[in-house]
Nucleic acid binder design. Structure first.
Lengths: 118, 118
DNA sequence: TCAACGATTCAAGGATTATTGAAATATGGA
DNA sequence: TCCATATTTCAATAATCCTTGAATCGTTGA
């Protein structure tokens, strides 16, 4: 993830509806969610959700794929991980005081595999 | 860090000049930087840097303190760490696939202390 | 082919954010 | 007190973003 992508991703996450959408999509995993379901659960109009989904896709945080009549949106785990990494390394310079507590949090809920730790 | 603060922080980081400022302030550490020095190194006008510094302060990512004629701005390490934590836990639900690689990065450059790992 | 469904696009309007330069404020020293 | 320095505030303009509802597009099944 380069700076250009990070700026777009930060902008995407700075809006309440979009942050809500990202959360839902992370929870729903690889199956993703149809635009209509997202609109319903986020309680926004179809055209409004479409606007925000486009913004999120532009930032690379989600991807779409058509499935019959529906369009299924899925969180891009790699991009989200890349953004966290950008925030830690590129933005905060790997500063221990900033990153160590965050790393501790991650270590608690999801220990990294050997491969990932190399 | 609650959602309201996180939204403001993401918005603050979504602008090139402000991201640049945060980077500089993280590097300069507890000593911080005077508004004038920031403006000079970021190559923006004093009034423009003042606008962005106010925005960053409003988001909680930096703090200010007057030192004689200068106003010194300092990165708020706690807030930055809190934002990373928010991104991992609240936004990404502690998802292993997303958080583990990021945790690995942090583990490389700045191992957490025993206390932080508890 | 036609109607219904799921979703996007478009245009208009309002709201927020960014930039600029001039004026104002606060501080310290002569 | 007066001037210079460091910075902010203000007003005006430009640019971007958000919301809304109507129109459009692609897909499916009758």
């Amino acid at each position: 993830m380069d700076q250009r992508q990070a700026l777009a991703a930060f902008g995407a996450l700075s809006q309440e509806t979009r942050l809500h959408i990202i959360r839902m999509l992370v929870v729903s995993g690889p199956d993703g969610m149809a635009a209509g379901s997202i609109a319903e659960r986020a309680e926004v109009s179809p055209s409004n959700v479409s606007f925000h989904l486009k913004e999120l896709e532009r930032s690379g945080l989600i991807t779409q794929q058509r499935e019959s009549r529906s369009i299924i949106y899925t969180a891009n785990y790699e991009a989200l991980g890349g953004l966290i990494r950008f925030l830690m390394e590129d933005c905060c310079g790997g500063n221990a005081e900033i990153c160590a507590p965050a790393a501790a949090v991650a270590a608690c809920c999801a220990p990294a595999t050997k491969e990932e730790l190399q």
